[in-house]
């Protein structure tokens, strides 16, 4: 009887190879950690950091304008060109302006929607709204941009809707870019804010009201400080995604260019990879500056 029990409580060892691996790894935490992280670290280093460094390095090379071959000699000419020529400055300001506008519009639209979802809607309608917000992400980015092209066109639905009020479609141009980008990136702004609001417990709002604060005061003193990290995360999404976009511009932007278009033409038509790299460093630098600014305000300390 005792023998039988012993055999049952301690199953045969050495038969299963999975068990061998497990018992080998159990006393070796460092090996376990190495196995866990090997794949993601390789991916990060190869695909991410190496690519970024390559971009940085390429920006200091130059192209033989006659043969089109890349000279791997160090020079600051590309960067000088990007920083001094009026074209690049204009396009940079335009791109940053569009990205800021898209971010502000998305935040203004997303905040009330996220607040409704997190604090007012019942569980069922909350689930439905999350699905509705995620649904556009299932459709291709291109399809959405072309859909807006047709909406914005001069015989499109927007014109038809606004005509009775003496207004019309803004057509293809900067306004079209802002509207389309704001639409495409909206889910990426709503979801972090929704998640952030869900973490602000209802009793905190009740406590604030109980202590005499009216709704706007509660939003200013309790909700906003607790929500700031989520708002910043959301703004990083819409800002950086707009900053790097060039397809929407081609589809609904009319003759306008953004930084992405300059990169695209230099990689393709102009065959000037080093200059393209130099231009691509501009949005990277802007994002670094933005993150540094956010860090400095201390907004991320309450995370």
């Amino acid at each position: 009887m005792a023998k039988k029990l012993g055999a049952r409580s301690r199953p045969d060892t050495g038969l299963s190879s999975a068990r061998l691996v497990s018992s080998y790894l159990f006393p070796r935490p460092k090996t376990r950690l190495a196995l866990l992280l090997a794949a993601p670290v390789t991916w990060l280093v190869l695909i991410y950091i190496v690519a970024l460094v390559a971009l940085l390095v390429t920006a200091f090379w130059s192209v033989d304008s006659f043969t089109g071959e890349i000279h791997m000699t160090w020079s600051l000419d590309n960067l000088k060109q990007v920083f001094t020529q009026a074209l690049y400055r204009t396009v940079t300001f335009r791109t940053v302006g569009i990205a800021l506008l898209v971010t502000v519009i998305d935040l203004l639209v997303a905040l009330p929607i996220a607040f409704f979802m997190a604090k007012i809607a019942k569980a069922r309608s909350q689930r439905i709204m999350v699905i509705l917000i995620l649904m556009p992400l299932w459709a291709s980015y291109l399809v959405k941009a072309y859909a807006w092209r047709s909406v914005l066109s001069h015989d499109g639905i927007l014109q038809w809707l606004l005509q009775p009020f003496g207004l019309g479609t803004p057509g293809y141009g900067l306004a079209g870019i802002v509207i389309t980008q704001a639409y495409i990136w909206l889910p990426y702004v709503i979801l972090p804010i929704f998640a952030g609001l869900e973490r602000v417990s209802n009793t905190l709002l009740e406590a604030s009201s109980d202590l005499g604060a009216k709704s706007l005061t509660t939003i200013r003193l309790v909700v906003a400080p607790l929500l700031l990290p989520a708002i910043i995360a959301a703004s990083i999404f819409s800002f950086s995604l707009t900053l790097g976009d060039y397809i929407t511009v081609n589809i609904v932007g009319g003759p306008n260019q953004m930084l992405g278009n300059l990169v695209y033409t230099n990689v393709g038509a102009a065959n000037n990879l080093p200059l393209a790299s130099a231009i691509a460093l501009v949005p990277v630098a802007i994002m670094f500056a933005y993150l540094a600014l956010v860090r400095k305000t201390g907004a991320l300390e309450n995370l």
Binding site: S201, T203, L204, E206, A207, S208, D210, P225, L226, N302
Partner: peptide
């Protein structure tokens, strides 16, 4: 005024 079960102190 209320003293809440989970205290509801403002974390920030």
């Amino acid at each position: 005024n209320t003293v809440f079960q989970d205290y509801a102190l403002f974390p920030h």
